[in-house]
Simulated scan of single mutants.
Amino acid sequence: MDKTYTIAIDAMGGDNAPEEIVKGALLARDKYKNLHLNLYGDKGKILELIGETKQDRIKIINTTEMIEMGEEPVKAVRKKKDSSMVVAANAVKDGSADALFSAGNTGALLASGIFIVGRISGIERPGLLTVLPSVDDPKRQWVFMDVGANAEVKPSYLYQFAVLGNFYATHVLKKPNPEVKLLNNGTEEDKGDKIHIQAYQLLKNGKQLNFTGNIESRELLNGHADVVVADGFSGNAALKAIEGTALTMFAGLRKILVNGSLKTKIGAALVKPALKEFSSVLDYNNAGGAVIAGVKAPVVKTHGSAKAKTVSNTIGQIKIMLESNLVPDITKYVDENKDQFKIILEEK
């Protein structure tokens, strides 16, 4: 019999909560037979949504508060002790759940992950990790970290992001020897500011990392790396630029095809299947969520406007993280390589 896992779900977090969160949880429950899903939130509202559906492997834990999207993250986590997110995070901390899922306030989930679930000893700064597609080869997904948690970094942070991303690539994406690159403003070894130049040397000399140099943002979607390391400011800016460009490109193309001549419309009909296939490659609804990497259990944030399908896919992503022993293996590696994780280059 497969090992069973319990996932704590913040049912009240997100633009479409609790409706889409509950629907997605039910989809995941039916799809993944070894998961138990604990829903934290307004019990009355959740029960209304579940209706006559059997509650096998579904448990509802009533909470009286919720953290809104616009609230100051750390203050909200400290003040709203009975919020769905905080109570769910405490369930992971005390061992009654194995992982935490939310579509809510990103900063609050980051604070919950670091201050409640807890940082892995030896990791200086947990970061946000996401998985993106390659346009050249849709099957070659790649890890991008950090995409927003740490705007200011040290060289050692970037090195640790590479190690965390490398583990995710091997364990979850099943890549045997991930190619690691550093996001920079040029490919030469001496490019970038002092922090990135020093980080390059740490990565170049790092144990068990297949580091192959810098990568520019224009090459991110071309399948030239399995793990890309960035500071949180640059990573978040690049991620939003990718999302924005994709949305603008498809909106503009749709406008031209719909409002064009008869010949254009005929051509649009012919290429529609190919365009639909290409758009699915860039559609976040087909992917999972952003992982808070470097904490003591899987903590995953899906898009705030996520629908049921995305919620279910993200729960499936958490399932893989749990079954692959990702966090325990990271913890063991960091503990066995403490000296490696204390490397800090002297600033000249």
Rank of each mutant, 00 (worst) to 15 (best):
S83F: 13
S305D: 11
V227E: 08
A287P: 00
P18L: 12
S279A: 14
L47N: 06
Q201L: 13
D2S: 09
E19W: 00
G213D: 12
T4W: 06
M69F: 12
E216I: 15
E188F: 12
E219W: 09
G267T: 13
E189V: 14
V300A: 01
A297C: 10
K79E: 13
F233R: 06
V300Y: 00
S324K: 02
L275D: 07
K174L: 05
I7D: 06
S134C: 04
D193A: 09
D82S: 11
R218P: 10
W142P: 03
P298H: 05
N90T: 04
R119G: 04
Q201P: 09
I256P: 00
I9C: 12
A293P: 02
L39N: 02
T302G: 08
I123F: 03
V271E: 03
A241N: 04
F161Y: 15
K139A: 15
D335L: 13
K93H: 14
L209G: 09
K319H: 08
A88V: 09
L275W: 07
R254N: 15
N16W: 11
K276P: 01
D42L: 05
V334N: 02
I318Q: 00
K338D: 02
N222Q: 15
Y5S: 10
E243D: 09
L253Y: 04
A237D: 03
Q141E: 09
A151K: 05
E52R: 09
D82I: 06
V92N: 06
D30K: 01
A246L: 03
E216M: 15
G213Y: 12
K319N: 06
V295I: 06
M85P: 09
I242Q: 08
V311G: 04
S217H: 11
A225F: 12
G206Y: 12
I320D: 00
V228M: 08
P18G: 11
M321Y: 01
S279R: 15
T187R: 11
K342Y: 07
D146C: 12
K332C: 06
K31A: 12
G148F: 07
V22F: 03
F250V: 13
Y159H: 14
A246Y: 03
N210S: 14
A251S: 14
S234P: 00
T106R: 02
N236Y: 01
V131W: 02
N184E: 10
F341L: 05
L220A: 12
E179W: 00
R254F: 07
K31S: 11
D2M: 05
P328G: 02
Y200G: 10
N337F: 10
K204W: 07
N38W: 07
S83G: 12
Y5Q: 09
V143T: 02
G260K: 11
L100N: 08
F144R: 03
K45F: 00
L262Y: 12
N285I: 01
F161E: 11
I60K: 11
P18E: 10
L26Q: 03
F115H: 12
